[in-house]
């Protein structure tokens, strides 16, 4: 009996530690929150500014934009002065929210369908979803979810384009680092570029 108990305990431990063991709570987190965000974009009773404000509030909870903003500048996160970092972060946050609002707008009114998930570690999971787009196409979107003290937050999103997974934050990091390397790490050059891109994104908004 004692051996059987040990075996069961060992099996339970192995199951819990296995990276392939899918954590259904991250799937529920993505499904609930992503759908909430898409609904906020599809509420006809809201004005454009109200919609943007509501969207930003949801995104602040849903995504860890603080962590993303550190990530996208890589080694420069520790090289910028606190004042420089703060200015960059404010510009980046505005840009990220504008980009995500515009991007997700293509999916408004549609439902995020969870297809499964993979746990890289107990605190780091990827949730696979499919979202039908307003134009009739269906996109395969993967959400990277990290466990935080008081719940979960998304840190990156991948689009599966013909078998090529494009992680948005990783792509941004590669480009931001190249831009910084080519301008001797100038925070102003980066902020100028980001602000210009934000203006372009907002100008193209519905």
């Amino acid at each position: 009996m004692k051996i059987a108990r040990h075996l069961i305990a060992a099996a339970a431990l192995a199951a819990a530690a296995s990276p392939a063991f899918a954590d259904a709570s991250t799937e529920a987190f993505v499904e609930d929150n992503a759908n909430e965000v898409l609904e906020s974009l599809n509420d006809p009773s809201l004005s454009r500014d109200e919609r943007t404000a509501l969207f930003s509030r949801y995104m602040d909870e849903f995504a860890d934009i603080e962590a993303v903003s550190r990530f996208v500048i890589g080694k420069y996160a520790n090289r910028f002065t606190p004042e420089e970092f703060e200015r960059f972060q404010a510009a980046f946050k505005k840009y990220a929210l504008a980009v995500y609002e515009n991007e997700l707008d293509a999916y408004r009114g549609n439902e995020v369908i969870v297809e499964g998930s993979t746990d890289r570690t107990p605190r780091d999971s990827i949730v696979d979803t499919k979202i039908p787009r307003a134009d009739g196409q269906e996109m395969s979107v993967r959400w990277r979810v990290l466990k935080r003290n008081d719940g979960y937050q998304v840190v990156d999103v991948a689009l599966n384009v013909n078998g090529n997974l494009i992680w948005l934050a990783i792509e941004q990091q590669a480009q931001f680092l190249s831009l910084l390397d080519r301008t001797n790490g100038s925070v102003d050059a980066l902020i100028n570029r980001i602000e210009r891109m934000t203006r372009d994104v907002v100008a193209g908004r519905r």
């Binding site: 860890d64 550190r70 990530f71 080694k75 996160a77 990277r144 990091q173």
Partner: peptide, 17 residues
């Protein structure tokens, strides 16, 4: 994603040229 919180952290290599 959390490596940059550490003082000694360097990049992930995604943008190393």
């Amino acid at each position: 994603f959390d490596v940059y919180d550490e003082e000694s952290a360097e990049g992930t290599g995604a943008g190393d040229q």
